[in-house]
């Protein structure tokens, strides 16, 4: 064992989408403060496997905070107690010896549990498929420098584009609203000249899909912004509202 922290974990275990889940308590002993949260779970899982018990399933991949695959609702907060941090970048030094940690999956009707802590976030993919792109084919595009874009606009679009699609916004929101996610993508294209041609049909298409997936409405609590691991701002949501209402009230574009 490589550390001296002993923790009690209460972990949501659920075999699949058709069965009911429950909390199971585990002891995580000998945890080093230098471990990441997921490495702590690795240690617990190795013990479980040695005992012949099914390890705790959770989604993760890059473990450097960019792929957006890790999730986990830790002690009441998505991605745990730290700000601007994904679960994979959360380290055990943010906890103390003897602490009890409750680990739950993202909770939303649109994110059904697949197993234990892993949820199905393909709703996000479908929203993007509804309109999160510029309709250009490969080839036949103008030179990259043919359209100058003011640095401030480009930087703002970049800020919106940094969304990693993890779903913490939905998990944090008391209404399970996906507005921050949708607005980040709509904003990126609404700001850039490349996105102008389909600006209003895009906002409508993506909102339609968002609603169809069963996410809740935004009540502007700001929880999403506070919990977003990459700092996507609420101004994006205001922009989405603007884009959508402008589209609905003043434009006649159809949704593709």
């Amino acid at each position: 064992m490589s550390g001296n922290m002993n923790l009690t974990l209460k972990v949501w275990r659920q075999k699949n989408n058709k069965t009911r889940g429950k909390f199971v308590t585990y002891n995580a002993n000998g945890i080093s403060p230098d471990m990441s949260f997921l490495e702590m779970l690795d240690v617990v899982n190795e013990d479980l496997v040695r005992k012949g018990e099914d390890p705790i399933h959770f989604d993760h991949d890059c473990r450097e905070g960019i792929c957006g695959m890790c999730s986990l609702h830790i002690n009441g907060r998505p991605h745990g107690p730290n700000q601007l941090t994904t679960t994979c970048q959360l380290h055990m030094r943010s906890f103390h010896d003897g602490q009890t940690i409750v680990i739950e999956p993202w909770r939303a009707a649109a994110f059904p549990v697949i197993k234990d802590l892993a949820v199905d976030r393909t709703a996000f993919d479908r929203i993007q498929q509804a309109g999160g792109y510029v309709n250009v084919n490969t080839g036949g595009v103008p030179d990259a420098n043919s359209i100058p874009i003011p640095k401030a606009v480009s930087d703002e679009a970049f800020e919106s584009a940094t969304c990693i699609g993890c779903g913490a916004c939905v998990a944090a929101c008391k209404n399970s609203s996906a507005m921050l996610f949708v607005s980040a993508k709509v904003s990126q294209y609404a700001l850039l000249p490349q996105g102008q041609t389909e600006r209003y049909s895009r906002a409508q298409a993506m909102v339609n899909q968002m609603d169809a997936e069963g996410f809740g409405s935004c009540t502007n609590t700001g929880a999403c912004e506070a919990e977003c691991p990459v700092g996507i701002k609420l101004t994006n949501i205001a922009r989405l509202n603007r884009e959508y209402f402008t589209a609905k009230l003043f434009k006649e574009e159809e949704v593709h």
């Binding site: 008391k174 502007n220 609590t221």
Partner: peptide, 28 residues
Amino acid sequence: VITIHNKKARPIGYAVYRGSANSAWNSR
């Protein structure tokens, strides 16, 4: 209407939910 819709969006709630860490009480 919105509240009912929002409740449906999360049929199973969290055992631990620390809204105070990310939003104002009145907003919730």
